[in-house]
Amino acid sequence: MSKILFNIENLSFSISKKEILKSLSLKIYEGDYLSIIGPNGGGKTTLIKCLIKIYQSPVNKIFFKEQPIEKIPQKKLASQISYVPQINETNFPFTAKEFLMLARYPHLSRFSSVTAADTKAVASAFDITNTTNLANRFMNTLSGGEKQMIFIAAAFAQGGEVILLDEPATFLDPKHEHNVYQILKTIHQETNKTIVTVTHNINSAILNSNRIALIKNGKLDFYGNSVDITKNNILEKAYNKKFTFIKHPASEKSIIVPEVV
């Protein structure tokens, strides 16, 4: 087994007095492509936000490389972990290139300007996401799919070894959805970064990630190899709904078939 990156031990977390995470424990391993699935309102987004300290979790509950996360300065944490938020409609008054350069913030010191390493990181981020042609476009002129690509590129440019993503392909058309998963896979395979993504697309989780965590009602319901999620009625119990499976013609993995209603 490879090294543990995140060790989450009995994490409970409340927002406005409502308990969202209930004593959740989970280990995330280096080099994994982990998909986090589960019913709406189960705490997936909250967990991701705790991992990058957008939410301040209680002390000694989350460890990153064996260090309690609250002890790591935000800038240092950001140099190792990057984050792609849920698609939002906010219009940023920056070009894609300026936006990516801002992602280099954890590597800047206050008085130095952009270094060659920054320029290189931004160029290779555009490269790996096939978005070099968008570099000089303003963020508010991009389509939803293009904007999401730029967010992923920014997370890549930030240079960490972990990328956290919150429903990166929701609301995208099939082509852009495919592009997102394609690029995540490329990043995972070519650079060996750890990918942790929240998703509602269970088939993509089965086909693309090597591990799945299922979170329901603030607790870990299932954690294991992605192909095992279709066994033992795990999904039926979690979503309280019947699922029909079929073998994927190319990968031979069992996936969900949409139902006729």
């Binding site: 957008i54 950001a78 972990i81 938020p85 940023f92 936006f99 913030y105 954890p106």
Partner: peptide, 14 residues
């Protein structure tokens, strides 16, 4: 200006 969540995730001690 990118929003507080993104700013934090980029390393700003908000």
């Amino acid at each position: 200006t990118l929003g507080e969540d993104v700013a934090v995730s980029r390393g700003v001690s908000l």
